[in-house]
Design a protein around this nucleic acid. Sequence first.
DNA 1: TTTTAATTTAAACAAGCGTTTAAATTATTT
DNA 2: AAATAATTTAAACGCTTGTTTAAATTAAAA
Lengths: 207, 207
Amino acid sequence: MPRKKEVVNPDTENKIKEAAKKVFLSQGYEGATVRQIAQEAGVNVALMNYHFQSKEQLFKSIYMESFGAFFGSIVRLLNEETPLEVKIWKIVDRYTDFLIENPMIPIFVLAEHRKDGNSLFKELNVREVVKTSYFTKQLQEEAEKGTIRPVNPLHVIFSLMGNLIFPVVARPIISYVGSLDEAGFRQFMEERKKIIPEMIMAYLKSR
Amino acid sequence: MPRKKEVVNPDTENKIKEAAKKVFLSQGYEGATVRQIAQEAGVNVALMNYHFQSKEQLFKSIYMESFGAFFGSIVRLLNEETPLEVKIWKIVDRYTDFLIENPMIPIFVLAEHRKDGNSLFKELNVREVVKTSYFTKQLQEEAEKGTIRPVNPLHVIFSLMGNLIFPVVARPIISYVGSLDEAGFRQFMEERKKIIPEMIMAYLKSR
DNA sequence: TTTTAATTTAAACAAGCGTTTAAATTATTT
DNA sequence: AAATAATTTAAACGCTTGTTTAAATTAAAA
């Protein structure tokens, strides 16, 4: 029986993980097959289980990694000690770049998340992180000063995320409707770097 | 070989379709099994193929129906001959209600769409419908009049859709982070009915 | 260099998949 | 009431799935 070892071949493990990431992200858990992953990695199927015990365990490592990248970066940006407006521009800029480089992560995470039921959020204590985030405090303070309208931070955060993420998730739709090729879509995303912060700030400052 | 018939039992077909919708929407195509659907419908597995020929064909009928509901309603609203600002409020109001009643449709359509490659869009000629929509014309006219800033309609449409759809797709996340129950989430969505149009209009009118 | 451990593979495994067959049942027509 | 057609089912089909076994190969330790 293949027990946990101290010494492993990291090259092989990386090859398998890269292949698994590619296949899982495009096909989902049920859509992916171990033989597909093995072929993509150029190894025997049995070797996959030798290194990762099971398809499910291999999937989990990919899922957690993607999940962390998906939310980790935005949570980190929310907590930076930058003035509110600067921060919003920065979040949009950085997260757009992240999404352009990792376009498959959002739909993968969101689609898989409908099955797993928030266990990862509890593990990462996302609730407290958001509630006590510097961003939340900033919105309250600025509202008290009267420089922006009072607002539930959750609405701002999910407006930001919706505006950022939806175009990537719906990319084939946008590309088709707008007749955009690879470069055209990139241009579209670059335009959003200006539009999204302007829209959020226009709302916060209005009235 | 079971050929297409003229007379069928519509009760059975509906039972199977309802069950298939429930299972496909929550599990996706690969995640769903014909035995699961049959059990949910309370019929034998063979009966499913008797009425729908194959799992794939049954899926397609569910997918096309969902796809049509997902985009059809918004395209219809875009083409209504209502003043711009009224229309935006109306789109948000109606589409929010649609999403509250059909929360599984967006993630289902988006997740499945990453496999099918726009064939349905071409079939429905979505591109021309959007380009020649009354909404697009309105944005141009108002910009010429100077009542709003000039803007690429695609950005407005996808900002609207992102703001509307993302919270539903990420509902478990919102519910967890905001400690919201069923009623709390509904309240959150009701609040967005005000916030989203205000945000879009604040952007269009600013500068 | 011999021995031992780690890695990789080919082949087989049981279980579950979508589908089909052929018989039983129900509804319709004659 | 008898005959025919439509519907439903139990059971089996062939195939693919994830996993395991046992042998072969490579690397490390003695």
